[in-house]
Amino acid sequence: MTGQDALRVALDRLCPMHLWLDPGGVIRHAAPTLVKLRPRTALVGHGFDAAFRLLRPRPCSEPPGALPTGLRLQVQFRDAPATAFNAIALPAPAGGLIVNLGFRMTMPEALRDYPLTSADFAPTDPTVEMLFLIEAKSAAMEAQRHLNLRLQGAALAAEEQAQTDPLTGLKNLRALHDVLSRLVNDGDCFALMHVDLDHFKAVNDSFGHDAGDHVLRKAARIMQSVTREGDTVARIGGDEFLLVFPGRQDRARLSRIAARLIAGLERPVRVRDHLCRVSASIGIALSRDIPGAPPDDLIRRADAALYASKRAGRGRFTFAGTAVPPDGASLA
């Protein structure tokens, strides 16, 4: 074996993706892994320029002159699949060039195009380790993603089942329905008070949502202060509340509660340097007016009474099925 042959055998193992060009730029030898990408006949005997396009450094002429040596090059197969490679060209011992190629970041796709095995890479080449890492990390990420999806689902379910309004700490609509269903099923009488804050939108618009949230929390405390234990206060919308008074059917008592509530809510709330002013319109429905009716019917009656209060000028309360009093405080 001549020295040249021995070198070639060594290079085939050390750099299994190299090409040997003669001084005219014609490929004289292609290392074994490159031959797996293109048949030997498509490489050996052809000019390097005929098989590869030089991407970087961008050639000034087409076809380009001799390959620059000692620089990091980027080349690409001219025919499909147009795999791109990093490359370096260095002078060969007896003239010509040795060009070594390596896969770039697109290696996972390149490996889909070619049936390569670890034997096709030099044992010192970290490509196989990289592929291992890519697959292992993808699998771990996928497992993590599944866990996240399940946790997200669990969080949504928990939220769904929750009975508390996170902003005010009052009951939410779900909790309210539970309370009402229980009362109706047990045949207990009760009163419903539907409260809607007046001018709340103006607070939000003028002073921001922080101020609005503050007013809502304050309103929640006022509503809790006018109710007894056993009553339910629920926030059922942005600035809408429903109060349930089990056992109460006395209009005079309910009127006093409603008037106290309006008076409490009308007290200005200081948020930073601003005084926020709201009021409340209230509709009240009594279960004994339509005995055995489903809770939704009573809520609708309270709602209709609330809108009667609004139409009559806000800041007042109305009993369902009655005329609107001329002034909210008149029954207090």
Binding site: T117, S118, A119, V128, E129, L131, F132, L133, E135, A136, K137, A139, A140
Partner: peptide, 30 residues
């Protein structure tokens, strides 16, 4: 995936066997 990840460890069974001592490190990488 598990078979594939194991096969990445060696081109031959002997190579695989001799690289088993890398396995804990490889697993920890992932």
């Amino acid at each position: 995936g598990i078979r594939r990840l194991l096969r990445f460890c060696g081109a031959t069974f002997e190579e695989f066997l001799l690289s088993l001592d890398d396995l804990p490190d490889r697993v920890q990488l992932a």
